[in-house]
Structure formats: C-alpha cells, structure tokens
Design a protein around this nucleic acid. Structure first.
Ligand SMILES: [Mn+2]
Ligand SMILES: [Mn+2]
Ligand SMILES: [Zn+2]
Ligand SMILES: [Zn+2]
Lengths: 139, 139
DNA sequence: ACAATAATTGCAACATTGTTGCATTTGATA
DNA sequence: TATCAAATGCAACAATGTTGCAATTATTGT
C-alpha cells in the first residue's frame, strides 16, 4: 500500500524533475483530494505542515501541469482549480461546479463528442464544458 | 434608421433607469460590437470620446447585466467579456474563443440540450460551454 | 562523504482585475 | 428652477497571479 507521498515522489521522478519536499507535499495533497481545489486551499493545507511561499506554489502547480501530472480548471470565478490526472483524465472531460459551496468535480467524459457545429472557417481545438448547479450535499 | 445611441437610450428608459451619458455611451458601444468585449476594450473606446471612471464602467456593466440588457461571458482567462442581448440570447447559448486573438463570439444555441448526465443527487441549473480554437481570421 | 552545479526556492516588487466607502454631481420630476 | 434620489469620481483596498534576482538545495560525479 503506497502512501500519497511515495506515489507523488514516484510520479515526479518519472518525469525527470527534482523530488523536492515542496513538490512532493503539493502533489500528495492533490492525490488525496477528490475535488479540484484552488491555490488558496492548497496553501491552507500546506500551512499546517509545510509552509511554502505562494510563488513557489504557483510555480510548482504550473510545473505539474506542464508535466501533465495535474490539470487546471477555470470555473467561472477568476480562480484556477487543480486536480490530479487520473486515467479517466487522459482525454478531455467536463466539470461540475456547485453554485453554493463552489466545489468542483471532474466528470467522466465530454458527452456526445460529435456534432459540434462551428461557423465556417473556424477550427476547433478544445471544448470547455462546465455544468453549474447544486451538489448532492447542497441540494 | 435608429442610431445606436437612441436605441441605447430607449433600452435604458424602458427599464426605469436614468439615461445618463455614460450608460448610453457604453450600451451604444456594445450595440455596435458583434463580439463579446472586455471592460478594458470598452474603456479604450470610451477614452476617445467620453472618458469615464473605471469604477463607473464596472458599475454600469453590472447594472446592464442586472437589467438583462447585456450578458457577460467568462472565457477562461480571468476576464469578463460583455455582449448585448439580442433575441437569440434569451436562452442559454455557447461561446467560441479564439486562442490566438482572444476574440469571443456568441453561438446560436446550446447544442443537444438533452442527455446531460450528472451524478445522483446533483441538480443542474446552468451550462457553460466554450469552444476554443482558431477563428476564421486566425486560421 | 564531499564538492560542483544546475534546478528550485524565497523575497520584494509589480501587474491586472475587480470592489467598497463616501463626498460630489447630475438627471428626472414637480 | 428647486429638489432629491440616483449616479459618478476618487482614493483606498482586495484577490489573484507574475517577474527578477539572490540564496538555497537536490542531484551527480568523485
Ligand atoms: Mn478536470
Ligand atoms: Mn453570449
Ligand atoms: Zn455544493
Ligand atoms: Zn482569432
């Protein structure tokens, strides 16, 4: 049974980066989290055990995104949320954001991938689909 | 043939607001614009003819959204874009954002409105769908 | 284990977008 | 034209994110 810390360290080393205590701690937090969480939320969790400069956190998250170990979600407020990449996330997927508690979850898939119709001359690269409403806890 | 200014003034009066020179000018700019544009872009257009405080612009845009004369779009960067409401916009619709020139257009409709599947207990209120890619000019 | 070195970090300063409080000005109405 | 609530301008603040650079640290070779 692997702890999140050792999993995180493995993931980082496999991508040729230095396995620093900060990177490991940050990725371990994201591995333990089932929702997509903000820079601020990660910072708060870190402050309990491993204080880290805000800038380092920003740069580490950016690095983890580059290495494709996590992805970030823009959910309408002007705040990025981060979530670890699991197998289901190798392709594009939709998100749900609760309008009451602001929690964001990743959904399995982009439903009905076909049939998106754009004006002529437009080239599609990526689809961003966010459902908003109330989560089960807030209903 | 109505000028955008008189159209704007009519729209504002019909909603019981004061027809100030600022509100009219802002709404006229949005009426003349086919794309969804940012606070910053509106400010630049205004600066040529009708300098206006940033805060007033923010508050006016908020007021126009409340009155349902315009709507705002969150397009992934942390910047709101504003677009006048036309008939086609009375219901929800998708948007396209060019990843090169950042232009945002409103698309006609939410394709395939049915069939969105959420986890049990979740209640859907709103769908935010943004296509990203290259516009005709940038292809 | 130690030194060399490049990658990572911390800190200060800055940028952008947006909000709030309050005094002043202005549009609508009588 | 006088009145007065609504709208505006200004200053200060807040949240989120970025940049430059010197100090630190993880890795590698010895
Ligand atoms: Mn996701
Ligand atoms: Mn729109
Ligand atoms: Zn909720
Ligand atoms: Zn373009």
């Amino acid at each position: 049974m692997m702890t999140h810390n050792t999993t995180a360290e493995d993931m980082i080393r496999h991508h040729g980066g230095r396995a620093t205590v900060g990177r490991i701690g940050i990725l371990a937090i994201l591995l333990a989290e089932q929702h997509a969480i903000t820079h601020r939320e990660i910072e708060q969790q870190l402050s309990e055990t491993l204080p880290l400069d805000r800038v380092t956190l920003y740069r580490t998250l950016e690095w983890l995104v580059e290495k494709n170990l996590i992805h970030k979600v823009s959910s309408g407020d002007r705040v990025w949320r981060y979530h670890v990449n699991r197998e289901m996330h190798t392709h594009q997927h939709a998100h749900f954001k609760c309008t009451r508690c602001a929690q964001v979850i990743c959904l399995d898939d982009l439903p009905e991938k076909r049939n998106w119709q754009l004006p002529t001359g437009y080239r599609l690269q990526e689809i961003e689909l966010t459902f908003k409403g109330l989560c089960a806890a807030c209903c």
